[in-house]
């Protein structure tokens, strides 16, 4: 299989006051298409920073980042926005849904950046909600949904534009065990049945068990470890 994500000698440094802090040190990583990778490690190990670089939310201080065969570390701000719209679906720990919009309108948001008609956008959003098993809640606002339901809507939003990659930052961090298992089962289904490549940051070893591979990070470096 070919690599869908490729990082070469990537370093990321932040300026904190007068001090320069290196969060990632000359990191190399290859993730194949169709993989489901869990990224684990202690707080401050650089997991989210790595996820931000892969998702095109941030740029490396050094090195190359390629996603879907495209170098994204040199893209302009607007080109990077177009890249995110086309290739990346994000799922956050706290769902990050728009509170004033219905579930369906939230899912439709990424489609506003496409040339689809209003009818097609509604149809696609409804399909995405059906995939996550929440079609009957389409008209409900986030405040009227449980945590698990809100996260399903967030996953539907991440899926709706058919991205190359799903990037999940602690997607079950705010959920109880049972709901977390349901969400992880859904991600596993999307990976197995729909062929979605998923990279998931988690602290939870049980959540990581749903992935095909687990990568451990510590102090800005990676140590790969295969899962059965």
């Amino acid at each position: 299989m070919s690599s869908i994500v490729s990082l070469k000698r990537v370093a990321k440094r932040y300026q904190r006051g007068k001090q320069t802090v290196e969060v990632l040190h000359s990191l190399d990583l290859e993730i194949e298409a169709g993989d489901f990778v869990a990224l684990m490690g202690p707080s401050g190990s650089g997991k989210t920073t790595l996820l931000n670089l892969i998702g095109g939310l941030d740029r490396p201080s050094e090195g190359e980042v390629s996603v879907g065969g495209q170098r994204i570390d040199r893209l302009s701000g607007s080109a990077l926005a177009r890249f995110r719209a086309r290739h990346i679906g994000f799922v956050f720990q706290f769902y990050n849904l728009m509170p004033m919009l219905s579930a369906q309108a939230n899912v439709e948001l990424p489609l506003l950046l496409t040339s689809l008609s209003a009818g097609k956008r509604h149809q696609h959003a409804l399909t995405a909600l059906q995939i996550v098993g929440l079609a009957e809640r389409a008209k409900h606002k986030p405040a009227e949904l449980s945590g698990g339901q809100a996260q399903r809507v967030a996953i539907a939003r991440a899926l709706v534009a058919d991205p190359t990659l799903l990037v999940c930052d602690e997607p079950t961090g705010d959920l109880d065990r049972k709901t977390a298992d349901e969400i992880l089962g859904l991600l596993q289904l999307l990976n197995r049945e729909h062929g979605k490549t998923i990279i998931m940051v988690t602290h939870d070893p049980k959540a990581a068990e749903y992935a095909k591979h687990i990568l451990h990070m510590d102090k800005g470096t990676l140590a790969p470890q295969a899962v059965a």
Binding site: A81, R82, R84, A85, L109, L113
Partner: peptide, 16 residues
């Protein structure tokens, strides 16, 4: 601000 950041995450450009 967090909602606007999410819009940018989804691919809305700075100008948009």
């Amino acid at each position: 601000i967090p909602e606007l950041a999410v819009l940018k995450t989804l691919g809305f450009s700075d100008t948009r």
